[in-house]
Design a protein around this nucleic acid. Structure first.
Length: 306
RNA sequence: GCCGAGGUAGCUCAGUGGUAGAGCGCUGCCCUGAAAAGGCAGGCGUGGUCAGUUCGAUUCUGACCCUCGGCA
């Protein structure tokens, strides 16, 4: 019998973390974060990590895990996550993945090729070429080496063009070929995926409240602390860093920083939704405003019983 | 009250005698080593109101309304 693995996904501010803890305590679960920002240490307030008091008793993995000085990415995530997943199962517990990072989630389920292909210098070189001759120059190059990916990638999408070229240069095999050879956990375990949804109005309200709470909890101080070190390219992308930096640099008042954070978090929600909505494997739970966590847990427990 | 500037897309604004664009926003979508990233697509809006000139006005003229700045 294959071991059970549970996923709780969906956009930010739907209450995944709280639900996850309640669920974990009912089924002897441990939580593995599937969140590209909560992995970083020292960004807890900003990335809305639940305070330790609320997390006690339930083990959390991949939260406050690496220094924001370092880059973290999907491949590292899938490597770390699978290791932890196996360990949890070995200890007779149920892994519960919780998060809103669509790519992290997808890669875990469907796999990613893990050959060492990352090459900073090569990327920089390619960027320079693109700058000098436009992205079309690189796009034509990609067309020659990997017509299959070039058909999928837009000529303006420099990041993907460069990545595809990088993979080919480093391995001699087109990225499109590599991508066909991946294998995720979806067929290896008894995977149950739940997506949490709430109405737009409720999400908006929750984001506003959460943003206020963040400021009361001292995000500004947290950001000040973070800005003292050189943040990695990946960590510095978190919503709130540039918004609060603007306030710290006296470009606008505090209220404006809050407004920007709310609006950019809302944008994030929209992107997360487009990502998850098309995944037909997700079991959606549309949470009504007056519905309690326990009622939602009951739905999930009923689903995973057999 | 007088003088000046202006009223065009949700916002900031460009432009034209032949019924309008840009950026941002918004909506939808794509996504496999930066993913809270990156990319793509979508614009009939009473052109403040009314009247005049004109074959034709958002574009010229006049009146009125409103906003902003200066003077009183």
């Amino acid at each position: 019998m294959r071991a059970k693995v549970i996923f709780l996904v969906g956009p930010t501010a739907t209450g995944k973390s709280e639900l996850g803890i309640k669920l974990a305590s009912r089924i002897k679960g441990e939580i593995i974060s599937c969140d590209s920002m909560q992995v970083y240490k020292g960004m807890e307030i900003l990335s809305a990590v639940l305070p330790p008091v609320l997390r006690k008793k339930i083990r959390h993995h991949l939260v406050s895990y690496v220094s924001p000085k370092y880059e973290y990415n999907v491949v590292k995530f899938q490597r770390d996550a699978i290791k932890i997943l196996k360990d949890i199962i070995k200890r007779g517990k149920i892994p519960i993945f919780i998060g809103g990072s669509g790519l992290y989630y997808k890669v875990l389920l469907d796999g990613i090729f893990t050959q060492q292909t990352h090459d900073k210098r090569l990327r920089e070189k390619l960027y320079k070429e693109a700058k000098a001759y436009s992205s079309y120059f690189l796009y034509e190059k990609l067309k020659r080496i990997d017509p299959q990916s070039s058909a999928k990638i837009h000529p303006h999408d420099l990041k993907r063009i460069i990545r595809a070229i990088e993979v080919y240069e480093k391995t001699g095999i087109p990225i499109s070929t590599w991508q066909k050879r991946t294998k995720g956990i979806i067929n290896e375990y008894d995977v149950r995926i739940f997506g949490l949804l709430r109405s737009k109005d409720v999400i908006f309200k929750r984001i506003q409240e959460r943003t206020e709470r963040m400021f009361r909890a001292g995000v500004v101080e947290e950001i000040k602390r973070l800005l003292r070190v050189k943040l990695s390219k990946t960590a510095q992308q978190a919503v709130g860093i540039k918004e609060i930096s603007g306030y710290l640099n006296s470009l606008y008042p505090l209220e404006e920083a809050k407004r920007l954070i709310v609006s950019n978090t809302l944008k994030l929600v929209k992107k997360q939704l487009t990502w998850f909505k098309r995944d037909k494997r997700i079991n959606w739970i549309n949470i009504r405003d007056n519905q309690t966590d326990d009622e939602v847990i009951k739905i999930i427990l009923d689903e995973i019983k057999n």
